[in-house]
Design a protein around this nucleic acid. Structure first.
Length: 662
DNA sequence: TTAGGGTTAG
């Protein structure tokens, strides 16, 4: 009797000890521990038979491993559980889905049914997610039937899953039918429908759904904005404004709302707005995350906002957001667009994992700076590593060759692409080839290349030909190219200016006047040249002939004195590129005040000797400015980087990185 | 009888 009593006392004691250990483990597991901690807990559980047989503990452990990206460990735990039920299977399926192992999720579901375990209202939403994520409409349809039989299609979560699955797979009518028949819906139901239309590029219908839900008193949330966003790239101003309206009506605590709105701006060439909103977000105290960063960096690059770009880079390091492919690729691109090749290369070299996009970004960084050889080296290294170049990688290497005048190399890459990699050339590749041949002076060949295109050439293709005609003073082909351009892009003033310059060089002033009257008749204005220069985090803007700057007088005085020194050193203004039909001296005056010259002189006055000057221009640098800046770089002893609409010129000690080839 | 759930942004 006595011994039985003490035995039960002992077992009670063991029981409470186990209970305590269990609750401690559960507490830790609920805090999403890292893999090391998880392994410790795991072995502790295995070593204790009482804990080991506890399925609810096993489930928590399974989820924790899956949350740390280890579904294979989750699976091992699952396999060791002998008494399986639907909950355990559901957790396993979910672990796969959360880690993008959709096929495994579906297989798991099948084997669950095969072993006689019933699916329930927890199983189906999850399997439906696996179907929609892997675009598996066939299996999705197979799930719909049993769902109907059990009446689950009318429940909230399964209904939402069905709407999302049909929407993602492009069966929008079925998605709408399910949504309409659902007896109770929530914001996720509506958002799923919105996402379906948006993912299939049907913005108007997505908007209709937004209006319908609003009329039923359901207010859009950040998820609605996120759902809409696939349809809001390169879209109309109205659509962007619609997004802005939703955004303004939303709580500013929501990170997703900020992220989507920034991305919408960035994806619609509204870089200034994207950057402004990012700064507002900072002021608002909302912490940016990896997605914010990946959206705002391209906008920084677009605006050549290096100092903001650098600040964001520092933030990335501080928050430990690296390694992250999207962010690192975006950093390379941002630095490249700002002309900071060294910084771009540093990010590139420090990457632990690089994909084709990383290599392509770095190659085009070199390409735009005229460093064709460096781009070629990277291309070979990428191939050596077994990474197959894709269509865009070829665009990048072809344009690098063209910017560096590497004609035969470019031809070889074109052959490699079409013959070995069997990549069908797209418009972009044709543009590159026409550009490559044209810059090398092979105008007839370039023209023949266009005539052989299997698709209709666009304005960029003809534009490449026209600018080559401009460089090589070829009026015959130039007129043909211009004819097409006036049809394809009648509002683009640049093409009229190019043709008119071709005429001007040939002294055909009557034709110049004719072009000008055509432009006038069509209401086309020449885009004024604008240059930006960054000084102490502030961007200063100059127009051609600008006298509005507070330091204007000083700038013009300095320019005058610089011009004297330049002429002494042998500078002769290249007046033949000026569009105007005026006397020589007047033409010279026109050229002197091109915006990039003003911006550079301003930077010289206001920065310490030796500081690098970075200018961004909205048009191509003209020949005269190019010569002049070479002289300035030597006389003022400054490195000057000028970014124009399609490349970089890095001037140093009287030489430009483009080797006068652009 | 307690475990487990849906949409979405680069």
């Amino acid at each position: 009797m006595k011994s039985i009593k003490s035995q039960s006392k002992l077992s009670r004691h063991v029981l409470t000890a186990t209970k305590n250990a269990e609750s401690l483990i559960i507490q830790t597991l609920d805090k999403s521990p890292d893999v090391r901690t998880l392994k410790k807990l795991h072995s502790r559980i295995i070593s204790d038979p009482n804990l080991h047989s506890d399925t609810s503990l096993a489930i928590k452990l399974m989820r924790a491993y899956a949350a740390r990206g280890k579904p294979e460990v989750t699976r091992k735990i699952f396999d060791r559980i002998s008494q399986r039920n639907n909950v355990i299977c559901n957790v396993m399926i979910r672990s796969y889905v959360n880690n993008h192992f959709y096929r495994d999720a579906i297989l798991m579901y099948k084997s669950m049914l095969a072993s006689g375990i019933m699916s329930d209202h927890y199983t189906l939403p999850c399997v439906l997610k696996a179907c929609s994520a892997s675009d598996d409409l066939r299996f999705g349809l197979q799930i719909h039937c049993p769902a109907v039989k059990k009446g689950l299609d009318l429940t909230l979560f399964t209904g939402n899953g069905l709407v999302a699955m049909y929407g993602k797979c492009g069966n929008l009518e079925d998605a709408k039918r399910v949504l309409d028949e659902m007896p109770c819906r929530d914001i996720v139901s509506w958002n799923s429908m919105v996402a379906g239309y948006a993912q299939n590029g049907r913005f108007d219908e997505a908007l209709e759904v937004c209006k319908e839900m609003e009329s039923l008193g359901v207010k859009p949330n950040p998820g609605t904005m996120a759902s809409l966003s696939p349809a809001v790239t390169n879209t109309s101003k109205e659509n962007v404004m619609f997004m802005k309206k939703i955004f303004l009506g939303m709580s500013k605590e929501e990170l997703v709302a900020w992220n989507v709105m920034i991305a919408v701006y960035a994806n619609n060439s509204m870089s200034t707005e994207a950057v402004d909103l990012y700064l507002q977000m900072e002021t608002n105290g909302t912490e940016p995350d990896a997605i914010t960063i990946a959206s705002v960096l391209p906008a920084c690059g677009d605006l050549s906002a290096v100092s903001l770009g650098k600040q964001i880079h520092e933030y990335v390091e501080m928050r430990g957001l690296k390694p992250n492919l999207s962010i690192e690729n975006a950093l390379i691109d941002m630095y490249a667009k700002c002309g900071c090749l060294v910084e771009a290369r540093k990010v590139f070299d420090e990457m632990q994992i690089k994909d084709v996009i990383s290599w392509t970004s770095m190659m085009s960084a070199y390409g735009r700076s005229g460093k064709g050889q460096e781009a070629i080296e990277l291309f070979s290294k990428m191939q050596d590593l077994g990474l197959a170049p894709d269509s865009i990688a070829f665009v990048s290497i072809l344009s690098a060759c063209s910017h560096a005048g590497l004609l035969s190399e470019g031809r070889n890459y074109y052959r490699l692409m079409t013959e070995e990699y069997k990549i069908v050339p797209r418009l972009e590749h044709y543009t590159c080839m026409v550009d490559l041949l044209g810059r090398a002076g092979r105008l007839d060949e370039a023209y023949t290349h266009i005539k052989q295109m299997p698709m209709e050439p666009n304005d960029r293709v003809w534009g490449a030909l026209l600018s080559a005609c401009h460089v090589y003073n070829n009026m015959d082909i130039g007129v043909v190219a211009a004819d097409h351009l006036f049809q394809l892009a009648p509002q683009q003033s640049g093409y009229y200016v190019l043709l008119s310059n071709i005429y001007a060089k040939a002294g055909r002033w009557k034709d110049v006047t004719l072009i000008r009257s055509i432009m006038k008749g069509r209401g086309i204005k020449k885009i004024p040249g604008v240059s930006n220069v960054e000084l102490q985090d502030q961007v200063h803007t100059f127009l051609a002939g600008d006298r509005s700057h507070p330091q204007s007088e000083e700038i013009y005085e300095e320019l005058e004195s610089l011009l004297g020194k330049m002429k002494e050193a042998g500078y002769v203004p290249k007046t033949d590129t000026a569009l105007h039909d005026v006397e020589e001296e007047d033409k010279e005056n026109h050229l002197v005040v091109h915006s990039e010259k003003l911006a550079i002189v301003f930077a010289i006055i206001n920065s310490k000797p030796g500081i690098l000057i970075r200018v961004t221009k909205n048009l191509r640098v003209c020949e005269d400015c190019h010569v002049a800046i070479k002289f300035i770089s030597k006389i003022a002893e400054r490195e000057i980087i000028v970014r124009d609409t399609n490349r970089y010129h890095h001037f140093e000690n009287g030489i430009c990185s483009c080797g006068d080839y652009w």
